[in-house]
Design a protein around this nucleic acid. Structure first.
Lengths: 219, 219
DNA sequence: ACCTTTCTGTAGTAAGCGCTATGTATTTCC
DNA sequence: GGAAATACATAGCGCTTACTACAGAAAGGT
């Protein structure tokens, strides 16, 4: 926001910083943090290393900004889906369908950057792996809290194990992302999304007979 | 098999080749193919680079032998579980529970090497990524064929979509592996395994009322 | 016009990568 | 015992990595 025209003092930047950031996003999304070299980044951006370092700091700082941008754009579908539906159950169903579509869009790399960009890391980038792991954990935590609200409001059975239900969704999403990166089609992932919802407790109002499909989540 | 005493001509090897292979397996399993350097391998094995190259060829050849060993030991639980049960449904349930246990054993790195060792790769090791991707695809194919047998024998509904059911299991396994690497406990993954089975079509004999839970797999 | 500020490309740095040439040590074969 | 064969450690190969010192170019401030 407002990246234009404060007309600062010295020689103006000759490239579009935001577009360069998107280029970095694409590269990191495609292959992950470590395999993408600064030389590849500068080549793809059409600039030289000093320009990159002046604009973004070092490679890790650039990656953190890339993750921030990713979360503000492609990483919102879970929260958006949960907000769009009244019940968490409908929200999760919508989120899984959205994931199937988003993870396989042809205009960007497959899968989820937060899930797959820092899987194989050396010790020198352990902090990057930690960052993404924390983001994944935060997603599951948010979902768990949302489930608890539904339980408190009576939209889910009182004995629902919110933590394990949230973890199930996290596992499905991680698996879908990996499978998308293995070349799965949108339709394939949509079928997985539909099937996964069969493991979710039925709505309380539509089915008071919630015995069997809920059992795994009672303690 | 028979790695001892053919008593060959020259100076005998001063280290245990098999144990060195297990060391490499552990390192590659922990961090993946590219992040593990030859220097780290030789340090962990207690040997020098020329000894490693003489015994195993280059780094990729060593990794391929590591994968082979992995598949013969830790990579057998799916086929074993399917063979141990008469129905594919019971076999898959057993496999998912086995995965929860195997992926979190404290005596080796978490998750599955075939799933996580070649996620972030440069162009120079694209063949390694292809190798593991092919192994994952082979697992799903084997499961699909097993499901088809059950459908033909009437142990699963005639309109079961074997391909998509196999993909679902593959996605769950990939997600469980990733979650294990994020630090999930055995119990957490066992709960996921139980829940995932709720998405599987019910047995035909025990429940002729297979309408609802099977719907997602009919076309 | 001149100074300051900022961005630019050239050309590097030290460190790490996978891998190996070389010489020596230890074994079996004859 | 001598030759052939194999494994050993030292040391270093060419290459890539993330990153930067430096000097010139292009803008604003005064």
């Amino acid at each position: 926001m407002a990246n234009d025209r404060p007309r600062r003092r010295g020689r103006p930047r000759a490239f579009d910083r935001d577009q360069a950031l998107l280029t970095a996003l694409h590269e990191f999304w495609q292959r992950g943090f470590e395999p993408v070299s600064v030389a590849e980044l500068t080549a793809a951006m059409g600039i030289t290393p000093p320009s990159l370092y002046a604009a973004f700091g070092d490679k890790k700082t650039l990656f953190r900004e890339v993750v921030e941008r990713y979360q503000q754009t492609h990483g919102t579908f879970l929260a958006t889906a949960l907000a769009a539906e009244e019940s968490t159950r409908d929200g999760v169903a919508r989120a899984l369908r959205a994931a199937a579509v988003e993870y396989t869009r042809p205009e960007h790399p497959p899968g989820c950057l937060v899930i797959s960009a820092a899987v194989n890391c050396t010790a020198t980038s352990a902090d990057i792996a930690d960052l993404l792991r924390a983001q994944r954990a935060a997603n599951i935590t948010a979902l768990r809290e949302r489930i608890k609200v539904d339980v408190a409001d009576g939209r889910l059975p009182a004995d629902t194990d919110a933590d394990r239900l949230a973890v199930l969704v996290g596992v499905i999403l991680q698996g879908m992302s990996q499978h998308a990166r293995d070349g799965a089609s949108t339709e394939e992932l949509l079928a997985v999304a539909e099937a996964a919802m069969l493991a979710w407790p039925a709505k309380i109002d539509t089915a008071t007979y919630t015995n069997s499909p809920t059992r795994a989540w009672t303690r």
